[in-house]
Every structure is written in structure tokens, then in C-alpha cells.
Design a protein around this nucleic acid. Structure first.
Length: 256
DNA sequence: ATGCCGGGTCCTACCCGA
């Protein structure tokens, strides 16, 4: 089973990139982030013609997530459980497919809107860990994948690519990511590639791609029984070199 | 040195991203 995630930075700008990538890589499931369109405006048709069913959770201008899958699935949640009812940000989708719970997330960045923006990120991470604990307690096999906006250790970003006070690397952010590791989840990329520079994002500015000044912020966390089935986990750097690319590349994991 | 790119939208200057 191949499960992929990709922050596309506008699906309307990247529709053809996604089609090409699906054809070349044949994932069973692809989660998308930053679709930047309302739910009804998501372009499902081109993906349907490739054999994928789409479900989008969108909003105007910002954020937005979606899932494309080529097997039948059930949508379980269209928002992160436990957030206030009036939270309008589209950042979470949870489905069940083949007996597995699959969660796609676009975790808040936390750098804008000052203390309030960072507090929102912290609350969001707390609720995500709560949801993971619920699924562990229920003995559900699950994957949480997407744009976490967390570089878990100093090895996960190029020297100088971020300030030490950036919301992606602040101690409070990393502590909440570690909470999910300590509860028993496996960081799929690091499980198979414990050391070294592995990035999933390069800024559009200052020649970040050319200098390989990247970040590893797109992740897949696996519940214990799925971690035992992990056989591959790789970002696809090739996508960053294409014309008009997203600033993130796809990350795909494979379970036997 | 956060706003150099690149997306969005109240269409054009401004918000957001990481």
C-alpha cells in the first residue's frame, strides 16, 4: 500500500503536476494540503479519469486539504476533533480505507498573528496528539501524514534556513511532536533513514533550492502495527526541479 | 534579512506562507 502527501500550494496552479505525479507513481492514496480553493471548486474530474475518488475540505484563499484514493473509502472527520465548533480553518481530513485510519493534516504554521497564532498552533498540536491517543487506545491501525510545519531536530533543516526562534523549531513545537513519538508513533522517514539531510520543502526565495537550503517538515507518523509493515519512505525531490513547482515535494511511504 | 518568491483576493496593495 502506497500512501503519499503533498502540499501543492494551490491545486488550481498545480493540477497538471498532480496528474503527472499520480500517473508516474501510482499511490493508493494521496493527501493534498494548501489546495487554496473552496470545497466545491476542487477539480475532481481530472483525477477521477485517472481512477481516483476525491474528497476535499476547502475554504476561500487559504489552507484546505483533500484526499485522492483509488479504493473505496469512508470519510470519518472533516475537522480535527476537539477544536472549538466555530474553528473555520480547513486543515484536517480523516478517512477509513482497507481497515486503516488515514489522516491528512495541514498543521498551522504558527509564525503569523503573533502570540495568538503560535497559541493556535500549540492547541492544534495538543488536539492532534489527543486524537492519536484515542486511536491508540482503540487499537486502530493509523497513519497521520501531511504538512506538520515542524522540523523535529536540528538535522531536519539546513543551517541558516530558519531562525532558532521560528515556530517550526521552537522548543514548545518540538515537545508536542515528541509527545506523539513517545506515545509510540513512528516517524516513517527517520525510521528508514536515521541520519542525514532529507528535506521536503525549499523556499522560493534566495535560491533555497539551488543551495539545498531546505526543511524536513512533511511527515508520516505510523501506529505500531503499521510501522512493522513499513518498507519505504521517501520525499520525491525531482518535483522541486520542475517548472512552476510547489515549494513542497511529495512524500510517499509504502507498507507491505 | 522575513518578505528576495509565489499564492491568494475586496484588483491592487496587502495578507499569508515557513
Amino acid at each position: 500500500m502506497k500512501i503519499a502527501t503533498w502540499n501543492v500550494n494551490s491545486i488550481r496552479q498545480r493540477e497538471q503536476h498532480v496528474q503527472n505525479w499520480l500517473e508516474a507513481n501510482q499511490p493508493d492514496v494521496l493527501f493534498l494540503q494548501e489546495i487554496k480553493c473552496e470545497t466545491h471548486a476542487f477539480p475532481s474530474l481530472p483525477f477521477h479519469s485517472l481512477g481516483y475518488t476525491a474528497e476535499a475540505v476547502g475554504q476561500k484563499s487559504y489552507n484546505g486539504v483533500a484526499v485522492l484514493a483509488r479504493k473505496p473509502f469512508t470519510v470519518i472527520h472533516r475537522a480535527l476533533p476537539g477544536l472549538p465548533e466555530d474553528d473555520a480553518q480547513s486543515r484536517y481530513i480523516e478517512i477509513e480505507m482497507d481497515g486503516i485510519t488515514l489522516i491528512g493534516i495541514y498543521l498551522p504554521n504558527g509564525n503569523s498573528r503573533g502570540d495568538e497564532g503560535f497559541a493556535y498552533k500549540m492547541a492544534w498540536m495538543d488536539r492532534l496528539a489527543d486524537r492519536a491517543q484515542e486511536l491508540l487506545d482503540a487499537d486502530r491501525p493509523f497513519v497521520i501524514t501531511g504538512d506538520f510545519n515542524v522540523a523535529p531536530t536540528d538535522e531536519d533543516y539546513a543551517p541558516g534556513a530558519l531562525s532558532p526562534t521560528d515556530a517550526l523549531v521552537r522548543p514548545e513545537t518540538r515537545a508536542r511532536f515528541r509527545r506523539m513519538i513517545w506515545m509510540g508513533l513512528t516517524d516513517a522517514i527517520r525510521a528508514l533513514h536515521p541520519r542525514g539531510r532529507i528535506y521536503t520543502f525549499w523556499d522560493y526565495q534566495a535560491g533555497a533550492w539551488q543551495r539545498d537550503s531546505g526543511l524536513r517538515i512533511d511527515h508520516a507518523l505510523l501506529s505500531p502495527t503499521l510501522a512493522e509493515r513499513l518498507i519505504a519512505a521517501e520525499p520525491d525531490r525531482n518535483e522541486r526541479a520542475r517548472t512552476q513547482p510547489s515549494d513542497h515535494v511529495p512524500v510517499m511511504i509504502e507498507l507491505k
